[in-house]
Amino acid sequence: MPIDSVHIKLRELLDANARFDLTARGTTNHCPMALVALARMGASPDRLQAFFDMWERKYALSAPPVDSVISRHEWRGYLGERAAFGALRLCFLDWIADAGAVAVITEVLREVPFAPATEAFHALIRLAYGIQAGHAGEIASGLASLISSNLPIAASLDERRAAESAGAGFDRVSRAVSGLALPTGSIVARVRAVATDPRFGETLLAPPASVALLDDLARATIGAYWRKPDFTLLHTVTATSAARIVFAQVPDSLMKPLLAHLWVALCAAVATVGWPDAEVADVPVPTLDWSDVCRMAIASDDDHVIKMAYTCLCENRRDPSPLYLATAARLVS
């Protein structure tokens, strides 16, 4: 399969996705993220089209008309304004055409506090996948989602002692809020409930003092998901991987605050389901290999299976661990 034909089809479908709303029936718009993951795992143009058609038929909602214009000097005033998503997307898209994606991503992340839990991490993941695809529309959509659906978590890390490890920090806040009655439904509602509970703020620690904090978080989250295959923990794995992609675009001077906000958001997310106590046991050798995993993920219509399998593939290439193949094999099977 000529790789150009896949890229052409992917770009065509990502362009077409602009007619879909930020939300979907019973979920958010996962379509563009799944398409990028499918393409990068080796899906054919026909498979990309079939997934897009399935999504449009079963889940997509039409984007409302954009009846206002937001200039690149006004976007900060629309923080948390869900209805402004479409206008913000066009604002960022126009700005990217003039200044380039890296400049716009950097400016947005510098000007407003980073809120990675926005839409329970999907805004961050969408931005990362847009970067990987080199698609200005999806980069603009990810940024617009981060601003319009902004979910800040007010928790200063100043003068807090550092957690001994990522797992120790996650475990501490999980135990502190273990009796909290959480709303049913979206991860967003549960994260918001934990983040506003006083016990969360009282027990939150600073992140471990590690020069490779993203690597530590990646190992901790995949280990937790292996031990406890919970839907929320799945998102901590995909969000950590997405953060690595986004953070690679910005100057080193922004890394410390961005990592701090990511740490707080992951702590809140983990606390909604609890940190699994058991240590990682010996990981069984799967009967599937990576080619099997990719083939089965490509055949799936489950966007979370697709994205998680792709994340495991990428993270294993970066930092090989039997957990990634075992996790992905369990998921696609």
Rank of each mutant, 00 (worst) to 15 (best):
I70L: 07
R110M: 11
D94H: 05
G137Q: 10
A60Q: 03
A87Y: 01
F85H: 15
A133D: 11
V104W: 03
V69E: 04
L61Y: 06
P116Q: 03
G142A: 10
R82K: 15
I131P: 01
H73I: 11
F85G: 00
L146H: 02
L61Q: 14
H122G: 04
E81K: 09
R82S: 14
S149I: 01
I153P: 05
L146I: 12
W55E: 08
E159M: 01
E138H: 07
F170S: 01
A128Q: 00
E119A: 13
S145C: 15
Y129A: 04
A128M: 04
G80S: 08
R110C: 13
Y59T: 04
A87D: 12
S149Q: 11
R160Y: 04
T106P: 08
L79P: 00
I96E: 04
S148I: 11
Y129D: 15
E164C: 06
N150E: 04
A154L: 11
S148A: 15
A163H: 04
L124C: 11
P65K: 05
A103W: 04
A168W: 04
P113S: 08
V112I: 15
D67T: 14
S156I: 03
A163D: 09
M54A: 13
L146V: 10
R82D: 15
F170P: 09
T118D: 01
R57P: 00
E159N: 11
V108M: 12
A84M: 04
V108T: 13
C91S: 03
R110V: 01
C91V: 12
E56I: 00
R82N: 15
R89H: 15
G169Y: 02
N150T: 07
L61D: 08
F51E: 02
A166R: 02
L157A: 09
R172K: 09
L90Y: 06
L124Q: 10
L109I: 13
P113F: 07
W75V: 12
L109K: 07
D53N: 14
I131L: 14
F52T: 01
I153C: 08
I131Y: 02
A60N: 07
V69R: 11
S148N: 12
P152F: 08
L93C: 06
A87P: 10
R89N: 11
A120T: 01
R172D: 10
I70A: 11
M54L: 11
L151H: 09
A63E: 15
T106M: 03
G169C: 06
Y78M: 06
A115D: 02
S141Y: 02
E81Y: 03
A166I: 08
L90A: 05
F85A: 09
Y129Q: 13
K58M: 09
S71M: 01
I96V: 12
V102T: 14
A99T: 10
G134M: 10
R89P: 02
V112D: 03
I147N: 01
R160K: 13
L143H: 12
A133P: 06
E164V: 11
G130I: 04
L146W: 05
A60W: 02
S68F: 07
L127Y: 03
S156T: 14
R72G: 14
E107L: 07
A84C: 05
A128Y: 05
I125P: 00
P113E: 13
C91M: 09
P152K: 11
A154H: 12
I139A: 05
A123S: 15
I147C: 09
V69L: 12
I96A: 09
A60F: 07
T106G: 13
K58V: 02
V104C: 10
F92M: 08
T118E: 00
L151E: 14
